[in-house]
Nucleic acid binder design. Structure first.
Lengths: 154, 154
DNA sequence: TCCATACTTGACAATTATAGTAAGGTATGT
DNA sequence: ACATACCTTACTATAATTGTCAAGTATGGA
């Protein structure tokens, strides 16, 4: 029951972007340095985040990424779903899955369904604004986390 | 954010055990047949479930497994945790993890912490009794699910 | 006693998913 | 033009998970 590092990185990167952008684009290079996330990996993440219309990009020198919406209109759940595809605890809940033909008979189905709803509900109850507000109230150094703290591979 | 098939199998197997045991031990062979779970795999699961004191075993012919407690005193969350080790969405929440030395600085930490609590809270709010009650109200055939329904490997 | 049943346990192979790397391309401001 | 920085695909290494195999031990009954 682990979240992918993609999702963890994505949320951290979005918080960083939100904190350090003041209207202007923030380059992935900056985010990569502050958050200690490999640049190439970040590029992949932001590729998805852009497709998911959570950020917009500005090309060329001085370019970078900008939030597509206000901080308080971006839910953590959105970010996670965008980079992680599905947020269902079991495969047979995925859209397009046909293996679960008779879900009415499956006693455990409703448990996993309910679990998925709780997970989404919770992550959708937190916005980027909540996280940046939290971050600004802290004596942070570089990046929204300290070096070595909460590294996914830790 | 997927539950392991171990956990899915374990819950189904426990429901099966609960449904078909009437005080007497149920053999893994039976459960294996009804639920279409490989016998050897079931053995591994029940090894853990026994260690977790959720079931007890009776050896020899006519033996098998019995619930260690009443149906309504066994939570789904317990079963899942027992076979799945951890139910934390990120590694740095695991007990004994030292990589997250300065969690006070980590803005996203509380999100994952809260998520873990919701997951555990939900799964602990459902008991085996809830599931068997549900199952008995259904026109089920063999096993608590129909053939091919909700197979983890989908 | 002997045997079949069924639990017990460890080791291991195959498959899959994930994380991370690499490389080349495209757009654009100076 | 040229440097910057986004864009996109492909690939590899590694880890986890799933599932198999095999060899035990305990025990009830014929």
């Amino acid at each position: 029951m682990r979240l992918s590092t993609r999702a963890q990185y994505a949320v951290r990167a979005m918080v960083d972007l939100s904190l350090y952008s003041e209207g202007r684009p923030v380059s992935l290079k900056e985010i990569s340095r502050r958050e200690e996330i490999p640049l190439n990996y970040l590029e992949q993440l932001f590729f998805r985040l852009k497709k998911g219309q959570i950020v917009t990009s500005v090309r060329g020198p001085g370019g970078g990424y900008v939030l597509a919406r206000q901080e308080d209109a971006i839910k953590v759940g959105e970010i996670v779903v965008t980079v992680e595809e599905q947020l269902n605890p079991v495969a047979c809940l995925d859209e397009g899955d046909r293996s679960c033909r008779r879900e009415a008979h499956c006693v455990t189905h409703f448990v996993w369904q309910g679990l998925g709803e709780r997970i989404r509900g919770f992550l959708d109850s937190i916005t980027l604004a909540d996280l940046t507000r939290e971050a600004r109230n802290r004596p942070a150094g570089e990046g929204n986390i300290e070096k070595g703290a909460c590294k996914p591979t830790g």
